[in-house]
């Protein structure tokens, strides 16, 4: 479980969040909607430890591991698809080569992109790159996954595919998504929130 408690974040004079609270439920898709500049990406960066200057608490339960899919994916262009998944396991988790390969192939299979295994990153389409970025957070055993504007560079068909993928993965994973795409949010969300007056509030589609 992921919980924000009384989180306050400001950049100089500009206060983005003030005493904001949020509980992200396990194995659900939680969506935070709203325009850019409200501090949604900053919130993600705080959760990921990329931004540490804030007040309040961000709590994770003991068995929670958070991964993030960046808006631009940030795949490793010098590595093949397979090695984008193998290298982090080898370096960070010290997984054996055989184990890392096995797990990578399994996850590529689950996400339906095993056919990309030896491809270069430059040759991937937007949808494929996104799947690989999701796969990369999964091979690292993350069970809470943050997606930053996942539909921003997807066409309609790929957006459909993403919605389907997320509903499958959400059986065993927790998702927190920020998006300005209301249609997508409606389709995918179990819970929807928005930032209003520097608080995170429940959002209902009208």
């Amino acid at each position: 479980m992921l919980e924000l408690r009384n989180v306050t974040k400001a950049f100089g004079e500009q206060v983005l969040l003030e005493e904001a609270n949020l509980i992200v439920e396990e194995n659900k898709v939680t969506v935070l909607v709203g325009k850019s500049g409200e501090g949604k990406t900053t919130l993600f960066r705080m959760i990921m430890g990329l931004e540490n200057d804030y007040k309040g608490q961000i709590n994770l339960s003991e068995k929670s591991h958070v991964g993030m899919v960046f808006q631009k994916y940030e795949l490793y262009p010098h590595l093949t698809v397979l090695n984008n998944l193998v290298l982090p396991q080898r370096v960070v988790k010290k997984t054996s080569k055989a184990e890392a390969y096995k797990k990578s192939v399994k996850i590529l299979e689950e996400l339906g992109i095993k056919y990309l295994i030896d491809k270069t990153i430059a040759s991937l389409s937007g949808g494929e790159a996104q799947r690989l970025a999701i796969a990369r957070t999964l091979v690292m055993d993350n069970n809470i996954i943050l997606l930053d504007e996942p539909t921003s560079s997807l066409d309609q068909e790929n957006t459909r595919n993403l919605i389907e993928l997320l509903s499958n993965l959400a059986k065993s994973k927790t998702f927190l998504i920020i998006t300005h795409d209301i249609e997508f949010a409606k389709e995918v969300a179990d819970f929807t929130y928005a930032i209003k007056d520097m608080k995170i509030i429940k959002h209902s589609f009208i």
Binding site: M68, K72, P88, V91
Partner: peptide
């Protein structure tokens, strides 16, 4: 090399040295 490459590495658990050795320097040399 984009800041994003370093940030994503950090979120995956790479330390600074590992990020340089495996991610930044190979791309910079190219």
């Amino acid at each position: 090399i984009s800041e994003g490459q370093m940030e994503v590495s950090k979120t995956l658990g790479f330390n600074k040295f590992q990020t340089y050795f495996y991610i930044v320097i190979p791309q910079a040399l190219k």
